[in-house]
Protein backbone atom coordinates (compact mmCIF):
# COMPACT_ATOMS: atom_id res chain seq x y z
CA UNK A 1 0.00 0.00 0.00
CA UNK A 2 1.33 3.42 -0.92
CA UNK A 3 1.61 5.97 1.86
CA UNK A 4 3.17 8.87 0.00
CA UNK A 5 3.06 9.39 -3.70
CA UNK A 6 4.83 12.12 -5.64
CA UNK A 7 3.74 12.51 -9.21
CA UNK A 8 5.32 14.63 -11.89
CA UNK A 9 6.70 17.07 -9.29
CA UNK A 10 8.57 20.12 -10.58
CA UNK A 11 10.18 22.84 -8.46
CA UNK A 12 11.78 26.10 -9.52
CA UNK A 13 14.27 27.79 -7.25
CA UNK A 14 15.30 31.33 -8.16
CA UNK A 15 14.73 30.88 -11.88
CA UNK A 16 16.45 27.50 -12.01
CA UNK A 17 14.50 24.30 -12.33
CA UNK A 18 15.55 22.23 -9.33
CA UNK A 19 13.23 19.27 -9.88
CA UNK A 20 11.87 18.08 -13.22
CA UNK A 21 8.77 15.91 -13.19
CA UNK A 22 9.72 13.53 -10.37
CA UNK A 23 7.35 10.61 -9.73
CA UNK A 24 7.81 8.32 -6.74
CA UNK A 25 5.75 6.06 -4.54
CA UNK A 26 6.68 5.21 -0.95
CA UNK A 27 4.96 2.10 0.42
CA UNK A 28 3.86 1.96 4.05
CA UNK A 29 6.51 0.79 6.51
CA UNK A 30 9.34 0.95 4.03
CA UNK A 31 12.56 2.92 3.81
CA UNK A 32 13.21 4.82 0.61
CA UNK A 33 16.75 6.02 -0.05
CA UNK A 34 17.23 9.04 -2.28
CA UNK A 35 20.75 9.17 -3.59
CA UNK A 36 22.63 11.24 -6.08
CA UNK A 37 25.45 13.77 -6.43
CA UNK A 38 25.62 17.16 -4.77
CA UNK A 39 23.03 19.54 -6.22
CA UNK A 40 20.98 16.78 -7.77
CA UNK A 41 17.87 18.04 -5.97
CA UNK A 42 17.65 15.52 -3.14
CA UNK A 43 17.13 18.11 -0.39
CA UNK A 44 14.79 20.11 -2.60
CA UNK A 45 12.61 17.01 -3.01
CA UNK A 46 12.27 16.64 0.78
CA UNK A 47 11.68 20.36 1.25
CA UNK A 48 8.96 20.29 -1.39
CA UNK A 49 7.27 17.30 0.24
CA UNK A 50 7.22 18.99 3.65
CA UNK A 51 6.14 22.32 2.19
CA UNK A 52 9.22 24.49 2.74
CA UNK A 53 9.47 25.19 -0.99
CA UNK A 54 6.56 25.65 -3.35
CA UNK A 55 6.24 23.27 -6.25
CA UNK A 56 5.44 24.61 -9.71
CA UNK A 57 3.80 21.53 -11.10
CA UNK A 58 2.67 18.03 -10.12
CA UNK A 59 1.11 16.59 -7.00
CA UNK A 60 2.07 15.19 -3.60
CA UNK A 61 -0.43 12.68 -2.25
CA UNK A 62 -0.61 11.34 1.27
CA UNK A 63 -3.04 8.42 1.60
CA UNK A 64 -4.23 9.32 -1.88
CA UNK A 65 -5.12 12.89 -0.89
CA UNK A 66 -3.29 15.78 -2.57
CA UNK A 67 -1.45 17.76 0.13
CA UNK A 68 0.59 19.92 -2.21
CA UNK A 69 -1.47 23.05 -1.57
CA UNK A 70 -1.42 22.65 2.21
CA UNK A 71 0.76 24.61 4.62
CA UNK A 72 3.66 23.08 6.53
CA UNK A 73 1.48 22.89 9.64
CA UNK A 74 -1.30 21.05 7.80
CA UNK A 75 1.17 18.56 6.35
CA UNK A 76 2.66 18.09 9.81
CA UNK A 77 -0.80 17.24 11.05
CA UNK A 78 -0.94 14.48 8.42
CA UNK A 79 2.31 13.09 9.73
CA UNK A 80 4.87 14.40 7.25
CA UNK A 81 7.97 15.42 9.22
CA UNK A 82 11.39 16.55 8.03
CA UNK A 83 14.59 16.25 10.05
CA UNK A 84 16.63 18.87 8.19
CA UNK A 85 20.16 18.69 6.92
CA UNK A 86 22.85 19.88 9.33
CA UNK A 87 20.74 18.88 12.37
CA UNK A 88 19.58 22.46 12.93
CA UNK A 89 19.05 22.22 16.65
CA UNK A 90 18.11 25.44 18.43
CA UNK A 91 21.59 26.11 19.78
CA UNK A 92 20.71 28.06 22.93
CA UNK A 93 17.82 25.84 24.00
CA UNK A 94 18.37 22.78 26.14
CA UNK A 95 17.98 19.31 24.71
CA UNK A 96 14.67 19.00 26.53
CA UNK A 97 13.46 22.31 25.10
CA UNK A 98 14.47 21.18 21.63
CA UNK A 99 12.39 18.04 22.08
CA UNK A 100 9.51 20.20 23.34
CA UNK A 101 9.73 22.21 20.14
CA UNK A 102 9.51 18.96 18.18
CA UNK A 103 6.30 18.30 20.07
CA UNK A 104 5.04 21.84 19.49
CA UNK A 105 1.87 20.53 17.86
CA UNK A 106 1.04 18.21 20.74
CA UNK A 107 -1.02 20.26 23.15
CA UNK A 108 -2.10 17.30 25.27
CA UNK A 109 0.35 17.18 28.22
CA UNK A 110 -0.31 13.50 28.97
CA UNK A 111 0.29 12.51 25.37
CA UNK A 112 3.47 14.58 25.35
CA UNK A 113 4.82 12.82 28.47
CA UNK A 114 4.00 9.48 27.00
CA UNK A 115 5.82 10.37 23.78
CA UNK A 116 8.77 11.66 25.79
CA UNK A 117 9.01 8.28 27.55
CA UNK A 118 9.01 6.53 24.19
CA UNK A 119 11.70 8.82 22.82
CA UNK A 120 13.86 8.53 25.92
CA UNK A 121 13.49 4.78 25.59
CA UNK A 122 14.88 4.84 22.09
CA UNK A 123 17.51 7.48 22.87
CA UNK A 124 18.85 6.91 26.39
CA UNK A 125 21.72 9.35 25.69
CA UNK A 126 19.29 12.12 24.84
CA UNK A 127 17.54 11.53 28.15
CA UNK A 128 20.86 11.82 29.98
CA UNK A 129 21.66 15.10 28.31
CA UNK A 130 18.20 16.63 28.52
CA UNK A 131 19.25 19.56 30.72
CA UNK A 132 22.28 20.44 28.59
CA UNK A 133 22.31 23.29 26.10
CA UNK A 134 22.11 21.86 22.60
CA UNK A 135 25.18 23.62 21.26
CA UNK A 136 27.34 21.92 23.91
CA UNK A 137 26.71 18.43 22.51
CA UNK A 138 28.96 16.56 20.08
CA UNK A 139 27.90 16.23 16.45
CA UNK A 140 26.66 12.68 16.88
CA UNK A 141 24.69 13.56 19.98
CA UNK A 142 23.20 16.53 18.19
CA UNK A 143 22.08 14.27 15.36
CA UNK A 144 20.42 11.95 17.85
CA UNK A 145 18.59 14.91 19.38
CA UNK A 146 17.54 16.09 15.92
CA UNK A 147 16.08 12.69 15.09
CA UNK A 148 14.46 12.45 18.51
CA UNK A 149 12.99 15.91 18.02
CA UNK A 150 11.52 14.84 14.68
CA UNK A 151 10.23 11.58 16.08
CA UNK A 152 8.52 13.00 19.14
CA UNK A 153 5.64 14.33 17.07
CA UNK A 154 4.82 10.76 15.96
CA UNK A 155 5.36 11.15 12.21
CA UNK A 156 3.88 8.69 9.77
CA UNK A 157 6.58 9.51 7.31
CA UNK A 158 9.93 10.72 8.61
CA UNK A 159 12.31 12.34 6.16
CA UNK A 160 15.98 12.38 7.17
CA UNK A 161 18.18 14.76 5.21
CA UNK A 162 21.83 13.67 5.31
CA UNK A 163 21.70 12.29 8.85
CA UNK A 164 25.28 10.95 8.82
CA UNK A 165 26.98 13.98 7.35
CA UNK A 166 30.10 14.88 9.32
CA UNK A 167 29.64 12.15 11.92
CA UNK A 168 32.31 9.87 13.31
CA UNK A 169 32.23 6.33 11.85
CA UNK A 170 30.87 4.87 15.05
CA UNK A 171 28.01 7.36 15.07
CA UNK A 172 27.26 6.61 11.42
CA UNK A 173 26.65 3.01 12.37
CA UNK A 174 24.46 4.05 15.24
CA UNK A 175 22.31 6.22 12.98
CA UNK A 176 21.98 3.32 10.57
CA UNK A 177 20.79 1.03 13.34
CA UNK A 178 18.38 3.71 14.46
CA UNK A 179 16.77 3.93 11.04
CA UNK A 180 16.03 0.24 11.18
CA UNK A 181 14.62 0.55 14.70
CA UNK A 182 12.34 3.41 13.71
CA UNK A 183 11.11 1.50 10.69
CA UNK A 184 10.35 -1.53 12.82
CA UNK A 185 8.28 0.63 15.12
CA UNK A 186 6.04 1.49 12.18
CA UNK A 187 7.31 4.73 10.72
CA UNK A 188 7.89 5.08 7.01
CA UNK A 189 11.19 6.74 6.21
CA UNK A 190 12.72 8.65 3.33
CA UNK A 191 16.44 9.05 3.76
CA UNK A 192 18.63 11.32 1.68
CA UNK A 193 22.27 10.29 1.74
CA UNK A 194 25.53 11.01 0.06
CA UNK A 195 26.82 7.82 1.57
CA UNK A 196 24.98 5.71 -0.98
CA UNK A 197 26.32 2.37 0.14
CA UNK A 198 25.01 2.89 3.62
CA UNK A 199 21.71 4.20 2.27
CA UNK A 200 21.21 1.19 0.05
CA UNK A 201 21.98 -1.21 2.87
CA UNK A 202 19.36 0.17 5.21
CA UNK A 203 16.65 0.92 2.64
CA UNK A 204 14.04 -1.19 0.89
CA UNK A 205 13.75 0.98 -2.17
CA UNK A 206 16.05 3.51 -3.72
CA UNK A 207 15.97 6.17 -6.36
CA UNK A 208 18.77 8.11 -7.99
CA UNK A 209 18.41 11.78 -8.80
CA UNK A 210 20.52 13.41 -11.46
CA UNK A 211 20.31 17.17 -12.07
CA UNK A 212 16.73 17.31 -10.87
CA UNK A 213 15.44 14.30 -12.77
CA UNK A 214 14.74 10.79 -11.64
CA UNK A 215 17.44 8.65 -13.24
CA UNK A 216 16.69 5.27 -11.77
CA UNK A 217 14.54 3.57 -9.17
CA UNK A 218 13.97 0.14 -7.83
CA UNK A 219 14.55 -2.19 -4.87
CA UNK A 220 17.77 -1.36 -3.05
CA UNK A 221 18.99 -4.91 -3.30
CA UNK A 222 19.04 -4.67 -7.10
CA UNK A 223 21.20 -1.56 -6.92
CA UNK A 224 23.74 -3.21 -4.71
CA UNK A 225 24.00 -6.20 -7.03
CA UNK A 226 24.14 -4.25 -10.27
CA UNK A 227 27.74 -3.24 -10.91
CA UNK A 228 26.78 -1.06 -13.86
CA UNK A 229 24.46 0.98 -11.75
CA UNK A 230 27.10 1.32 -9.14
CA UNK A 231 29.60 2.61 -11.61
CA UNK A 232 27.23 4.92 -13.41
CA UNK A 233 25.50 6.52 -10.46
CA UNK A 234 27.28 5.71 -7.30
CA UNK A 235 30.72 6.87 -8.33
CA UNK A 236 32.58 3.59 -8.90
CA UNK A 237 33.11 0.56 -6.72
CA UNK A 238 36.43 1.65 -5.32
CA UNK A 239 35.12 4.72 -3.50
CA UNK A 240 34.21 3.06 -0.26
CA UNK A 241 32.33 5.22 2.18
CA UNK A 242 34.17 6.02 5.38
CA UNK A 243 33.47 3.82 8.32
CA UNK A 244 34.29 0.48 6.78
CA UNK A 245 30.69 -0.54 6.32
CA UNK A 246 31.58 -3.11 3.71
CA UNK A 247 31.38 -6.45 5.39
Amino acid sequence: MTLLEVSNLSVHCGGMQALRGISLAVPVDSVLAVIGANGAGKSTLLRAIVGLVRHSDGAIRMDGEDVSSLTIQERLARGIVLCPEGRRLFPDLTVYENICMGAYRIRDRALFRQQLEVIYGIFPRVAERSRQVASSLSGGEQQMVAIARALVSRPRILMLDEPTLGLAPKMVLEVAKLVTTIKQQGTTIIIVEQNSKLALRISDYACVLKTGSLALEGPSADFLENDKVREAYLGGSNSEPPGGLVT
Partner: peptide, 13 residues
Protein backbone atom coordinates in the same frame (compact mmCIF):
# COMPACT_ATOMS: atom_id res chain seq x y z
CA UNK B 1 13.16 28.96 18.76
CA UNK B 2 12.08 31.36 16.01
CA UNK B 3 14.77 33.82 17.09
CA UNK B 4 17.42 31.12 16.77
CA UNK B 5 16.25 29.36 13.61
CA UNK B 6 12.95 30.44 12.03
CA UNK B 7 12.98 27.82 9.28
CA UNK B 8 13.48 24.89 11.59
CA UNK B 9 10.85 26.31 13.93
CA UNK B 10 8.40 26.30 11.05
CA UNK B 11 9.25 22.63 10.48
CA UNK B 12 8.02 22.01 14.03
CA UNK B 13 4.69 23.57 13.11
Amino acid sequence: AVAQDPETASLMG
